[in-house]
Simulated scan of single mutants.
Amino acid sequence: MKSTHNILWAYTKSASVTLAMVTGTAALITACSGVAPLPKEYSQDQLDSQIMVPPGQVVALETTASGLLHYECKANATTAGTIGWVLVRPEADLLDRTGKTVAKYSGPPATWTHIDGSSVVGTQVALAPRVGATNLPQQLSTGASGTSPGVLQNITYIQRIKTKGGQDLSKTCTQTELGNKMTQSYQADYIFWKAA
């Protein structure tokens, strides 16, 4: 016959194990509930039609960029006889949806280089206004990929959307300011597409 002490000890041990299991399960459930859900599939539904990618394309990479745009006060090559702020060099780091830096943006020409060595050069084909006078317009470019294999190989289109900043060109730029330089910070999402 077991003593009362042994029975009490067995119940206490059993209760402690049960409590540890319940507490551990609750902690695990709480930890899992903090895990971010998978990002939704990219949609063009809210974009202006002129910067939408045509059918038959799929998203190859979604990124968020933060960087600088360097301007110079100079004669505008596309509009003879005018002077204004001309973009001479962009630079930005691109992060994927997990927050990892995966590419760099530079130019001219507009070039995105992935950490795997692949790259793509963009040629602007359309712009769409972005709310806010100092925000860059949204943009659609065609892509010409480099020869190195990787994520940016065979890219057909690049979208620049959700722009913020980068275009406060209110500083004076006249004949007397020719050669002056100005740097603007900006943010944007770059979406890279390839044929399905």
Score class of each variant (00 low, 15 high):
residue 119 S to F: 06
residue 22 V to M: 09
residue 2 K to R: 14
residue 87 L to Y: 01
residue 172 T to W: 01
residue 81 G to K: 06
residue 8 L to V: 10
residue 73 C to P: 04
residue 174 T to R: 01
residue 50 Q to T: 12
residue 170 S to F: 01
residue 117 G to S: 05
residue 74 K to Y: 03
residue 111 T to Q: 12
residue 47 L to M: 00
residue 196 A to F: 08
residue 145 S to D: 06
residue 25 T to I: 14
residue 149 P to N: 02
residue 11 Y to Q: 07
residue 101 T to I: 13
residue 143 G to I: 01
residue 73 C to E: 09
residue 118 S to V: 13
residue 34 G to S: 13
residue 115 I to S: 14
residue 166 G to I: 02
residue 169 L to T: 09
residue 110 A to G: 05
residue 50 Q to G: 10
residue 71 Y to G: 09
residue 151 V to D: 05
residue 120 V to K: 08
residue 170 S to G: 08
residue 58 V to S: 14
residue 168 D to S: 00
residue 95 L to D: 13
residue 173 C to S: 08
residue 7 I to E: 12
residue 155 I to G: 10
residue 182 M to R: 05
residue 23 T to A: 14
residue 165 G to P: 05
residue 131 V to Q: 14
residue 2 K to D: 12
residue 92 A to K: 02
residue 195 A to S: 10
residue 80 A to G: 07
residue 79 T to E: 08
residue 164 K to Y: 05
residue 2 K to G: 13
residue 156 T to R: 01
residue 75 A to K: 08
residue 106 S to C: 00
residue 163 T to A: 01
residue 123 T to N: 11
residue 103 A to Y: 03
residue 106 S to F: 02
residue 109 P to E: 12
residue 135 N to C: 03
residue 132 G to Q: 02
residue 55 P to E: 02
residue 171 K to Q: 06
residue 162 K to D: 14
residue 69 L to V: 11
residue 125 V to F: 03
residue 66 S to N: 09
residue 155 I to P: 10
residue 128 A to G: 08
residue 66 S to Q: 11
residue 31 A to R: 11
residue 5 H to P: 11
residue 78 T to H: 04
residue 48 D to A: 13
residue 24 G to C: 10
residue 36 A to H: 09
residue 139 Q to G: 00
residue 191 I to W: 07
residue 78 T to I: 15
residue 71 Y to C: 08
residue 107 G to D: 06
residue 95 L to C: 10
residue 191 I to G: 11
residue 195 A to K: 07
residue 187 Q to D: 14
residue 192 F to E: 08
residue 76 N to G: 03
residue 98 T to L: 12
residue 30 T to M: 12
residue 178 L to I: 06
residue 152 L to F: 15
residue 60 A to T: 11
residue 80 A to T: 12
residue 42 Y to W: 12
residue 46 Q to N: 06
residue 120 V to G: 05
residue 85 W to D: 09
residue 193 W to N: 09
residue 24 G to T: 11
residue 162 K to I: 00
residue 83 I to S: 05
residue 19 L to A: 15
residue 152 L to A: 00
residue 151 V to K: 12
residue 132 G to M: 01
residue 22 V to R: 11
residue 127 L to F: 01
residue 84 G to S: 10
residue 103 A to R: 05
residue 166 G to Q: 02
residue 97 R to F: 01
residue 175 Q to R: 09
residue 177 E to A: 05
